[in-house]
Amino acid sequence: MLEARGITKLYGGLQAVAGVSFSVAPGEVLGIAGPNGAGKTTLFDTITGHTIATDGEILLAGEPVRGTKIHHRCRLGLARTFQHPVAADTLTVLENAYLAASFRRGRSGRRSRPDDIAAGRAALERVGLEGKAGVPAALLPIYDRKRLMIATALATDPLVLLLDEPFGGLSLGEIDETMGLIGRIRDSGVAIVCIEHVMRALVALADRVLVMHHGAEIFVGTPAEMLRDARVVEVYLGAGGGGSA
């Protein structure tokens, strides 16, 4: 559904992303791990168009999109969330969801406000925010903001969902609920790529994991293999930590 080949992003002489390739199929979760500064979010930015990759190819449902605009990729079925929970603060929760739903994939013909509001509401129900439809987004606590960001992504009816640290800053109970939510999104046939530091969640959710370090991929495999991989352990724990793993 989404295929990236040899993605490279240069900032001057710095290789933020160095030739990373991956693909993800409908109903699959690809985890992306790596220490801070490994280039995970920059990789996401090149996929969504927030920055244009210096080199490489990005195929979204078979269509090359490397040089296209952010909103164009969204309308083709690519949605993402951000590391910091962001939303249109002065709009209500429902207005946020409505706006995203009005650009949902495959919406045909003239825009219909009742239809778009219904689609927005349906997305809010999927994350459990329907009770806060009238609340301005600025007044939401962090867990609700994170769920709103996922709801507006779902409202665009994506084929591919990129999640940037969906568990960051959440309590243990909230992490469990979010894991359930992401599992349900996966089961609905969406291809998911998820950057995460919370290993418990990553291991439970991901079918495969790609580990990055200094912009390059150093490991691709199942979560179980990742936990046994000497290089991954070294990158995360430092040299010498690998002996007992």
């Binding site: 927030h50 952010i70 603060d89 002065t90 949902r104």
Partner: peptide, 14 residues
């Protein structure tokens, strides 16, 4: 208003 509040996010919503 959404573009004013959060430009990068709003573009990513179409």
């Amino acid at each position: 208003r959404s573009v004013r509040d959060a430009p990068a996010y709003t573009a990513a919503r179409g």
